[in-house]
Design a protein around this nucleic acid. Structure first.
Lengths: 252, 252
DNA sequence: CGAATTCTTGAGGCTGCTCAACCTACGTGG
DNA sequence: CCACGTAGGTTGAGCAGCCTCAAGAATTCG
């Protein structure tokens, strides 16, 4: 975990906060944030723990400070599908609903800035400008979810794998930059099973595709959660998307 | 098209309006609605016409009064995937964004209540309660989209087809009720290609699955856009979902 | 250092896509 | 009114991609 994060990053606590700039908090005035800060709590969850279970009462919402949270829907037959991944600065939890239709689970060890849901709803009611920012964020999220749905549905598994790897290589916080001679290593903080669930495939098929990319010298496997991007152009070709589309997805 | 609709259904015009009760308009006071009504326009689009093209400036938003609008994402290789269907009372268009990442197309002849996007944004700014309703609606939509993504991704084509047919059979406005002896006929107002795009399959595979259901006496084909639901329980079994889940999807 | 978990590799079968032909419904014009 | 054209839908054959099941490597953790 980043040192700076640990020091200053309760949502709304400080304009120096890394999260601050990207989250909805950035819309409020100083007083607004101070008020918000009084009702927030920083909490950590170990990898694998359930933050909010499907079908249960929505108790808390908040921002992710560090780590990855997976949003999944579990069907009756037990197989669950990951319908979204949440990264630092992303908002988690379901506002204005008593029961959660999805579950929020820690895909890695996570640090969260939590707020009681009902308290935050009251806060939003009193601060329409911040609620407005929330609406804009959710509209963007809606587009992003639909765009991702189009990708997972119309493409081959290899195309999805390549898309995911490229997006992770571009996403802020996943690049571990070395010297000019030592190339960039990308960190994918998820297990093979989680990635497979997210892409709508199996760990086996995923593994085969990753190995194929590795053999084709497009990427190099450091270990299960780290790879080196050797040929970005070739990875884009495998993804079946344009660079512009991929970059838009990565920054969304 | 329904006679009653034509008479009274401009969004916000009348509490008698069929759309009124389900759309965001229901949150406003009488004055709010009157004000809204002054800036709305009723328009019709023939089947196949583009209401809002992908990548173009977002000009109008509004409610669907009659017909079905498909929300699709077209990739560079030309194949487009339908990421959502909008029915009467649903809101269409993209607020707070200059450029649309998705395209809105008339899947049938449609009647819309349109509002200039920027004008509606100003209206929302002046009416936080209505913006609040918009936020709640979008949060529901987000859950629904994710739930649908989980269905299309984790299930076989037959399961998706069965799910779609069941949902259409339950959705208000698609049932054509006859006498007690004449069973219910369900209207699916989309072409095979649109359904296939929506389910992430091909018209051929879709057709085969429909014929299988027909041979199994689960449904009966009247013609391409009408079928009779013979055995709802069996259809649910084919869908791989529980009745409760399906009904929740249908009413979402 | 051993146990458990995770990841990889292999073989085989099935689902669903592709390509191609045929059928049907509908609208047009002779 | 019927022949014809077109678009949409159905059916068939063959093949490719992906899942399943199973076993073997690698990594993590106590």
């Amino acid at each position: 975990m980043n040192e700076a994060l640990q020091q200053s990053c309760v949502c709304g606590k400080s304009p120096n906060c890394v999260i601050y700039h990207r989250s909805i908090c950035s819309a409020g005035t100083a007083e607004d944030l101070a008020q918000l800060n009084r009702i927030t709590h920083q909490k950590t969850f170990p990898r694998g723990s359930v933050i909010q279970a499907q079908g249960e009462t929505c108790e808390i919402v908040g921002n992710i400070i560090d780590g990855v949270v997976k949003l999944s829907s579990t069907s009756v037959n037990g197989d669950d599908h990951i319908v979204g991944l949440l990264f630092p600065s992303d908002f988690f939890g379901r506002l204005f609903a008593d029961e959660s239709r999805l579950s929020y689970e820690a895909a890695t060890d996570v640090t969260l800035c939590t707020i009681n849901r009902v308290a935050f709803e009251r806060y939003l009611f009193a601060h329409p400008l911040i609620e407005h920012e929330m609406l804009k964020a959710k509209l963007d999220e809606l587009d992003a979810v639909r765009e991702w749905a189009a990708i997972t549905n119309g493409h081959t598994t290899m195309q999805r794998v390549a898309t995911l790897l490229y997006v992770f290589s571009k996403r802020a916080g996943n690049q571990i930059r070395h010297g000019a001679d030592a190339p960039d290593i990308v960190h994918v903080p998820l297990s093979r099973r989680d990635i497979a669930d997210y892409l709508g495939t199996t760990p086996e098929t995923l593994s085969r595709n990753i190995q194929t990319l590795s053999r084709a010298k497009v990427i190099r496997n450091i270990n299960a959660r780290h790879f080196q991007l050797i040929d970005a152009e070739e990875l884009i070709r495998y993804s079946g998307e344009t660079r512009a589309d991929l970059d838009r997805i990565a920054t969304a």
